[in-house]
Amino acid sequence: MSEEILFIPREVTTEENFAPGHRACIGCGEALAVRLVCKALGKNVIIVTATGCIEIISSLLPQTSWRVPWIHTLFENVAAVVSGIESAYKARIRKGKIPSKGVKFVGFAGDGGTSDIGIQALSGAMERGHDFLYVCFDNEAYMNTGIQRSSATPYGAWTTTAPVGEKRPLGQMTWKKNMPEIAVAHRIPYVATACPSYPFDLMDKVRRGLDMAGPAYIHVFSPCPTGWRCRPDISVELGRLAVETGIFPLYEVVNGEYHLSIDLPELRPVREYFKHQGRFRHLSDDVIEEIQARVEADYKRLREKAGLE
């Protein structure tokens, strides 16, 4: 089923359920990703969003960018709020209070709201098996509050709370938490990684995750020119470079089976990805080599899981 292509250019709706006019920075990869995800979701959804960039750029009272029902309450509780909404629909349909309309339930959060402060609520909701799709828009730091490091910030990246100093010249000193693998460990039916630089792949995955009964998790790599200290016109290119270097491989795990969405016979050097971004400007050759080795090892492990090694 993973091979099946659901979206092709002329069949993608021109309808924008995430309306233009929002307040995202220029070149925002996350806003692009949200727009594409919303196209794939369609109208029959309820979206819950965590506090963060997407919430503040889209919902400044008295305006809203959301043309589908949308709710934001707090930072760390998206998956719990979705659990409540899904349960409400289930109970009210069963009790004959509302008709069954096949409404889908979706949670949106950033990397901090997912892999740091929201991980408990997400783990609980995945374990309980609610029928929902959770999309993590990963821009690799707390961008909304001003580029502070999260557990999804990559090794060696500069952030305002992992600054580059004489005593600590590295920036982020820990390796990125592998959130998709944590989702896989919950043995949910669908986990995928995606990137708006591959829009049809992203939309296909959203649709597949949505149609799957039970929890689905999609981790969307979302370039952030403001926080990554790069030109705003290269967000899409950076997404492609992250995939082509093996830093962010695209894959699906359907009922525990791994499938690489794009298998690269040869990875491009990570240096090509780093050179466009101010957040990696300070990295020494040694550190870049260290990262290169780690990326290659991780990619090999992933290919093994997909039965390709």
Partner: peptide
């Protein structure tokens, strides 16, 4: 899995009627 989620789920469910 926590009281924080208990009230969050109640908020979501109540918002869904």
């Amino acid at each position: 899995e926590s009281e924080h989620s208990a009230m969050s789920a109640c908020v979501g469910a109540s918002a869904a009627g």
